[in-house]
Design a protein around this nucleic acid. Structure first.
Lengths: 216, 216
DNA sequence: CGAAGAATTCATCACAGTTGAACAACTACG
DNA sequence: CGTAGTTGTTCAACTGTGATGAATTCTTCG
């Protein structure tokens, strides 16, 4: 029985840093960055708030640590690009939806995207990642004249799925099944990647053959 | 005279409420919601911070008022839907990019989207707006069996353009010209709206469809 | 004029994240 | 065995946030 406040380090408590990280991960994904306060988190873990700063430097540092643990998109993307290019659109949509629909992988990704929208520094991180891991490699594989434009547009379409279905949850996208999405979005993606741009509909003063200021 | 509806003190200095609103609009668009504090804003306007709460109830109320003044997407969408359905994809992309590229209209929209990502209540607002003003009407006009799916997917791709080009600023999308975007994204959007859904493709299978000619 | 009521400010609250000092537990070394 | 050093942990305090209710000024009406 200790009527006195018992200051000082508690003996025998197991790895507190990992405990903080675990609880923080859970709550950040569930309640968002602003929804979690250092103090309430500290109470949850049974620890003083200053200890979190001690371990992670700041609230943002804690969030970054949580993201680092939770998100590894690179390997998924690499596996996607390995397969047959012809079927990539369908496989990409299917993989994306599968990963995002699963809470263990989807929630971390969602909170990462949310954070990136609020924080320019994190946005730059995602931007560079998308570029290095996806757009450049995709452009290399399709390799036609405006490959970069096509790859970028492809990523834009995929990103739109993420944005509308998961971030905004717009109907009917939010409740469509994987197959329905593949069926409606797949053909569009295939067009973007493969079908040669034919300005048959509107010539629109196409002075040159699909050249722009893009110096490759 | 008569029972004038506005009794009490009239603003000696010209309409302070409007002044607050103007400065707030500017700063919110430039620095984001969290970047603007009530106190600093009050200093900017030359007024006590409590006055802002007096007029707008809360910081969120102020932000909502700014959004209300800055964003009117409905009429643009209506005009889009009026025109020829055949050319809608191209016109939609062109209008969207034009509106978002112009700072006076683009910045408010961007800050609205940013806020919606952070705040579920605002997200619901945008969601309902998109639904009522765009998806439902678009589905009515194309009117085939899976019209809603098509309309949703269409909006998803358009939303992806917004997300990747303006929110995330992913290259090469961020620096493509309007014409380049129309050229690469237009055909995909046309497919999404008009080309009959793949009847003969494998509905779903592990590997996805093995090659095949583009849907004819 | 005087009362009413709107516009404005002041003082203060509760809560946020962060920080420096104090202290307790454990380790290493004499 | 003792003592100095390191690390984990807490406490108290600081600054800055948005919000609120009381007090004060100013304008207009009766």
């Amino acid at each position: 029985m200790n009527s006195s406040p018992r200051r000082g380090r508690r003996p025998g408590s197991p790895d507190v840093r990992a405990q903080i990280l675990a609880v923080a991960r859970d709550r950040f994904h569930r309640e968002g960055y602003d929804g979690v306060t250092m103090r309430s988190l500290a109470v949850d873990v049974g620890v003083d708030a200053a200890l979190i700063s001690y371990y992670f430097g700041s609230k943002r540092g804690l969030f970054a640590a949580v993201l680092e643990i939770s998100v590894h998109p690179a390997d998924i993307l690499a596996k996607l690009l390995e397969g047959d290019l012809e079927t990539l659109p369908q496989r990409a949509v299917r993989t994306l939806v599968t990963v995002w629909d699963q809470p263990e992988t989807g929630l971390p990704l969602l909170s990462a995207v949310r954070a990136a929208v609020a924080d320019p520094e994190l946005a730059a991180l995602i931007r560079r990642g998308l570029h290095r891991e996806l757009i450049d490699q995709l452009a290399d594989r399709i390799g036609c004249a405006d490959a970069r434009h096509r790859a970028g547009t492809f990523v834009g379409q995929i990103g739109g799925l993420v944005f509308t279905r998961y971030v905004l949850a717009v109907e009917p996208l939010a409740s469509m099944t994987v197959d329905e999405i593949v069926r409606t979005l797949g053909p569009a993606l295939r067009i973007t990647l493969f079908v040669p741009a034919v300005p048959a509909r509107r010539p629109h003063a196409a002075g040159g053959p699909a050249r722009g200021p893009a110096p490759r």
